[in-house]
Design a binder for these strands. Structure first.
Lengths: 204, 204
DNA sequence: ACATAACGATAACATTTGTTATGAAATGAA
DNA sequence: TTCATTTCATAACAAATGTTATCGTTATGT
């Protein structure tokens, strides 16, 4: 009864979203897919609700089928955004999940959000039982590594203006669905500075 | 004859370094270890020599047994450091290695450096043949993900002064073996600014 | 040993970015 | 609707950081 609050199962539509995502990386047969689905739980997070709060250990990985989440760090009463996730992406503090140490960050919903949740023990069990899911785990880790590596290099090598222009091109959902002051702290700058950049960029 | 320039085999001492590193993650039996060692090549890079140049695809992963490497990005005739690696660590543009696209970065040796090299096809073949090496690949990807994720969050959430203090505590080798102007660009600041931070920190 | 280059501290000044405050428009709740 | 809240732009000023140059020291190569 460990996961009693999450024992609602995902809908066929939600399952299909995850299946399409998964098949970009591996091709599970029916048995393997059954193993996978057998450890899913559905979780709904209302707007302003939390997936994880700073200080807690992140014990699960979530696949977002609807909504938007951000993770942020609190310092001196201010919130600094680390990243944003939307439908068809994962939400987790994978560092905390893997190391089983308390997270430094909170994850909250910016919109009503539906998540398919996998718990730590079930994930490890999939890895142990199956070469296919072991490979899936590797490919996922490689993908998120590439993503965060590019983001890190952009922070060091690119000006905030260039980062903002990249955001417009590569992640338009952020511009459309996230308030500007949150985007500013995501870029490591103040809302005032971002507003100045926008004015400068608009005049071109 | 594909790797003809690298067909020197590693010494017993170098093999032992890699074995110790590997066994922190997986426990290969003799047969598995033999598979692993059968695709190693030794490469020596003299000081100021290159492991990879911007524009080339990174076709290998290297384990450093001696020396120091940095990767950097060139812009407007200046060099901006991305990271540094020393003995008992890997050197690679894993993004370029995995995606098979040209690297944006160059990797050069700051000291005479010895590397045990694994080529792309051999690595993929290990993953296909063996569940143990597939797992090793996952664990490596998870580790470097955590590393770069923490670095990225530090860039967004911490002041340069705090990052410098963390460097002293967590990566003293960088302070001891890397020139200050390279450390500065690694922190995303100018050498002058880093010098000012050092003076401020010293006066405490 | 010598000449040269690389390194690091510092100063003076320029530029960028942050801080605080204000107001107007958009959004959300009762 | 009405009222409060959030969001964003902007201005004035302060603080942080970058730029350029100089100087003495320390490595490096021949």
């Amino acid at each position: 009864m460990q996961h009693s609050e999450n024992t609602i199962l995902p809908s066929l539509e939600q399952l299909e979203m995850l299946r399409l995502f998964t098949e970009q990386l591996v091709k599970p047969n029916d048995e393997e897919w059954a193993e996978f689905t057998s450890c899913m739980y559905l979780k709904h997070i209302p707007k302003k609700g939390f997936f994880l709060r700073a200080g807690e250990v992140c014990t699960s990985v979530g696949f977002i089928t609807r909504g938007a989440m951000r993770f942020y760090h609190e310092k001196d009463g201010n919130e600094y955004s680390g990243n944003f996730s939307f439908e068809n992406n994962f939400v987790t503090d994978y560092d905390s999940f893997l190391t089983r140490k308390p997270s430094l960050y909170s994850f909250s919903a910016l919109e009503p959000t539906d998540i398919i949740v996998f718990h730590y023990d079930d994930v490890q069990s999939l890895y142990n039982r199956s070469k296919l899911w072991e490979r899936f785990g590797r490919l996922i880790a490689e993908h998120i590594f590439i993503e965060v590596q590019r983001r890190k290099n952009s922070l060091v090598f690119d000006s905030p203006e260039k980062q903002y222009l990249s955001l417009i091109k590569d992640r338009p959902k952020i511009l459309e669905r996230i308030p500007q002051h949150m985007i500013a702290t995501y870029l490591g700058i103040t809302p005032v500075h971002l507003s100045r950049i926008r004015r400068k960029v608009a005049g071109k």
